[in-house]
Design a binder for these strands. Sequence first.
DNA 1: TGAACTCTGTTAATTAATAAACAATTTTCT
DNA 2: AGAAAATTGTTTATTAATTAACAGAGTTCA
Lengths: 215, 215
Amino acid sequence: MQRTSQKVSMAVIRRLPKYYRYLENLLNKEIYRISSKELSRIIGFTASQIRQDLNCFGGFGQQGYGYNVEELYKEIGKILGLVREYKSVIIGAGNLGQAIANYSDFQRKGFKLKAMFDINPKLIGLKIRDVEILDVDNLEDFIKENDIEVGIICVPFSKAQETADRLIAAGIKGIWNFAPFDIKVPDNIVIENVHLSESLFTLSYLLNEYNNPED
Amino acid sequence: MQRTSQKVSMAVIRRLPKYYRYLENLLNKEIYRISSKELSRIIGFTASQIRQDLNCFGGFGQQGYGYNVEELYKEIGKILGLVREYKSVIIGAGNLGQAIANYSDFQRKGFKLKAMFDINPKLIGLKIRDVEILDVDNLEDFIKENDIEVGIICVPFSKAQETADRLIAAGIKGIWNFAPFDIKVPDNIVIENVHLSESLFTLSYLLNEYNNPED
DNA sequence: TGAACTCTGTTAATTAATAAACAATTTTCT
DNA sequence: AGAAAATTGTTTATTAATTAACAGAGTTCA
């Protein structure tokens, strides 16, 4: 059913996790059937957009009936690649790195944390939830020996690109970047940025705009 | 200079923090003058887009010269509302909440953390970096007595909307939401979502797409 | 069973976002 | 001082994203 090699826009891709989450909620409520119209009401996108988004990947619905929630949930899970597990490491075991390590949710989503790395001797050897902090000198060896595919960058701005380059040279496939820096990667490497400060600045803008409209 | 009441699109607003960050970097490198063309090379947007974005807020540049980095930096800071401080509280002192509290960066950006709240008696009374964890029963009183303007939601999915409603009723102006839930707020309340799991799922999708192209 | 209703997949229309073009102005350099 | 080069602000063109429209297929219910 898929329109082969018809590129899916990033806007669509970023909506998929939301569909997935809402479908999970529906399943938890034991709702097994849903129309794009009803989903639209719940999720806040137009029904048209929902149908068009889903159709990028296949005709999962049935005319006159709607979508089977369980089937659609599974299909989107497959599309999102949630059927498999990715071995990951965190680089940078400071506040942010420890925060992510402690935020166990992401391990439940198929990203298994195998080690953390830092340059600070005071941190090396410590454990965060059973995961050891290793010397960053061992980064490349560890990645190669343990087939690590995903690197989570929590180092300061100034070390971000260097860290990414090392990860890529060691054979990593994807990067989840929390450093406030736009890391450059080759085409075959996947990168996803979480720029917390940009999010915070946006909040600040909106607060400011509301308090002083049109100044 | 500003086109009064000509609404600025969210796409533009979300680029402002990036301009701000790059301008800061330029200042650190003691670069005091820049053209849209050169900024384009560094930041990766087209020069046309940069000029158009900045012009939503005023004519900060000069023909034949370009932009004064320091002036532009300050202006964008003002637009982002970074000149003032917002008092904030975190609700939910579990892993994620502690993570955010420990991630001291955001306090440096004008969001002063005044307290944390939790429902768990084991956590109440503890301190994270000088900030005390209080009983969530005292949430409304604390917000009113201390003129708290921003609530950072780190509670589980199931408590997210309820928490937001309480914050809003107590007089909060903006919410930074880390719960995997799309909180509904009235028009006069500002909300900024950080959906980490959606970011992670996007990474998973991209990894999967790269590994199994067109299946 | 069959008529009325529902709802998808898909195409067409609309709106929004991005990029290109260019006149006007300033700077730079001789 | 004056010509050539640089660069903005802004208008126009292009591309992308969203919404609307609708034929065709399936469901529901009398």
